[in-house]
Nucleic acid binder design. Structure first.
Length: 623
DNA sequence: CTACCGACGGTTTTT
DNA sequence: CCGTCGGTAG
């Protein structure tokens, strides 16, 4: 298809700037505010590149996201838009991509960075710098350079940009000497290496730099690279990107929004777009349409956006208002009990009168959601509405990790299959696929059909137990125990690599048990229990940071006060960006709450004045 | 044992 | 900004 004949698929229209960005032949960065449709833009560009054969049939697009959710969403959108070419769209997290390179090519690592045999991932490494004062004493000429090395986020900022030497080190600068000392402390001659994701990133960069053939293969495979949420790129990720794709012919498309850069405190680059523009001679595009929020909402967005960037042009809402209420309000309460009751009562009435599911509403907080959870959960529960906090600890696991765990999902699927008598087609397909995978080698037809007969018999047995026992604590323990002993621990461990550590397997089962027991009260049967365990139909409670990239009909931002926003003074600009992210998650309404008892508002007067500029009303909720 | 003082933490993802 | 924790004086 000729480029002029291409039309967007599955959507009505694209804004003019999106057309320009989509057809741009070189590298580009697309600044796209909240609701601009960044995922849709990338999906359309993928279809354009495939349909016009600018990405020829033997080549692929590499799409890099930060979170697994985002990588999965993008893959799903591309799958919907361009089903014939999805196998040529590799949507991965940054860490999955770099780890994959290390796993495939670790024999190409030059000494002394070679990894023999297995290695362990250390998730929580201490970010402590090496003894910088000691190093400075040994290199007196570099004393000033050593003094300038950042102590906090040392690993992200310093190690993350350090290019490991090929053959003997000739570290000259203080940063190189400090990074090398840091590596030597944790990459000794031990049998099993322990490496963090920053280390894997640096090892992947080394593999590509030391082996031109591998780099060439990557450049040939991927003439196009997409990067999502570019504003929060870390030093290591950017350094990797530049090292691998920086001087080649690869066309890199970065999308993001500087106004939503909220990871600076965690050591993300503070001028990723400027560096990218320079290193990749990238053209800048700006999208202005907003497919998420009503025009009443975007008017308020603009006031905050202008505080962050005076040149910003207002977004043009493509969405009609569907509520009568004010788009943005501040609700005042006396104390935390008053707040929890008022919020729960309002959600209960608004869901009832509108027919909207509770999961179209979100509760956001600047931090420490577990402290807010109890009151809200109890008040909502009284009104028959569940709440889900992904940060909640279930046993030794975070709910978020439990619900993402493949083995835990497999157990829930099996429960569903038994509860629904095979009526849940998706769960059945997944369980059936799982059983086929649980054989050591490739299984023949006879073996497979035997396993499926055995699965049928087990499901029938489990089903009989469930029918005679309503879901309660002992029945839950019994059912999960039956599932584990039916599958068998060795088979579970070979099918789910994460469960190879026996203690982790036990933790996962215990956590799923705890989760099911927690939500069992009021569950109508086993299928409903599984829904509740996954938090289906529940009002989510989360930090603003976690809500980045998500959207809800109505958003309630809890605690617009000096207590929740204590860090405002440390970096007011980043705090306003966080405020902007929270504000802009909503399609129709954002409600801020303030309790006299929780804290003052002097420190964040700037935020209240921004709201005052659009005459935002202050009130008690009407119910 | 208690009362007081100062230091400290808090927003995060990734196989 | 303020709750928590560890140390110390009384």
């Amino acid at each position: 298809m000729a480029p002029v004949d291409w039309r967007p698929v599955g959507i009505d229209q694209l804004e003019p700037n999106a057309w320009n960005a989509l057809r741009h032949e070189g590298s580009s960065f697309v600044v796209a505010g909240p609701g601009a449709g960044k995922t849709e833009f990338l999906a359309q560009r993928a279809d354009y590149l495939f349909s016009t054969r600018q990405c020829p049939p033997s080549r692929s697009i590499l799409a890099i996201s930060f979170k697994r959710d985002a990588a999965r969403n993008l893959a799903a959108r591309v799958g919907a838009r361009t089903p014939d070419s999805t196998h040529r769209f590799d949507s991965l997290t940054f860490d999955a991509f770099t780890k994959g390179l290390v796993d495939r090519f670790r024999s190409a690592l030059p000494e002394p960075w070679r990894i023999e045999g297995d290695y362990e991932i250390s998730l929580r490494e201490s970010g402590e710098p090496p003894d910088l004062d000691g190093l400075a004493a040994r290199h007196p000429k570099l004393a000033a350079e050593f003094a300038a090395i950042p102590r906090d986020n040392f690993v992200n900022k310093v190690v993350g940009t350090y290019a490991l030497p090929i053959g003997g080190s000739n570290a000259k600068s203080a940063r190189e000497l400090a990074s090398l000392a840091w590596w030597n402390q944790r990459f000794g001659s031990t049998e099993t290496k322990r490496v963090s994701f920053v280390m894997l990133n640096r090892l992947a960069e080394l593999i590509v730099r030391a082996n031109p053939a591998i780099r060439r293969a990557l450049l040939v495979t991927y003439p196009f690279v997409f990067i999502d949420e570019f504003q929060d790129t870390t030093f290591a990720q950017y350094s990797f990107l530049r090292s691998v794709f920086g001087s080649g012919r690869t066309v890199v498309t970065a999308v993001g929004d500087d106004k939503q850069r909220i990871m600076g405190w965690a050591g993300a680059l503070d001028n990723a777009f400027a560096e990218f523009q320079n290193d990749f001679t990238a053209q800048r595009f700006e999208l202005n349409w907003n497919f998420r929020s009503s025009s009443a909402m975007t008017r308020v967005h603009h006031v905050v956006a202008k505080a962050l960037n005076d040149d910003v042009s207002p977004a043009v809402s493509q969405v009609d208002a569907d509520v009568e209420d004010d788009a943005v309000v501040v609700w005042h309460f006396d104390d935390l009990d008053d707040e929890a009751r008022g919020v729960a009562q309002w959600i209960s009435e608004d869901t009832a009168s509108s027919g909207r599911s509770p999961d179209r509403y979100a509760l956001l907080a600047r931090q420490k959601t577990v402290d807010l959870q109890q009151r809200l959960e109890a008040e909502l529960a009284q009104r028959g509405i569940p709440l889900r906090n992904d940060d909640e600890e279930v046993g030794t696991v975070r709910l978020q990790d439990l619900l993402a765990d493949e083995f835990a999902k497999g157990m829930l699927d099996l429960l569903r299959v038994a509860a629904s008598y095979g009526g849940n087609g998706d769960a059945w397909m997944r369980t059936s696929g799982l059983i086929s995978r649980m054989h050591d080698g490739p299984a023949d037809d006879e073996t497979l059909s035997r396993s499926h007969r055995s699965l049928d018999a087990f499901v029938a047995r489990l089903r009989r137990c469930m029918l005679s026992n309503p879901p309660d604590s002992p029945a839950i323990g019994q059912a999960l125990g039956d599932i584990v002993s039916y599958l068998g621990i060795p088979a579970i461990q070979s099918a789910f690599p994460a469960q190879r550590q026996r203690s982790y397997l036990e933790d996962t089962v215990a956590a799923l048990t705890a989760r099911l027991e927690k939500v069992v009260g009021g569950a109508e049967g086993w299928e409903d229990l599984c829904d509740r365990a996954e938090g289906r139909g529940a009002v989510p409670l989360m930090t603003i940071h976690k809500s980045k990239g998500l959207e809800y009909h109505t958003v309630i931002v809890l605690g617009l006060d000096d207590r929740q926003w204590w860090s405002f003074g440390k970096d007011p600009i980043e705090a306003i960006r966080t405020f902007f992210v929270g504000l802009s998650r909503a399609e129709q309404r954002t409600i801020f709450t303030h309790c006299t008892a929780r804290g003052g508002r002097k420190g964040i007067e700037a935020l209240y004045s921004l709201l005052a500029e659009t005459n935002v009303a202050h009130m008690r909720p009407q119910s």
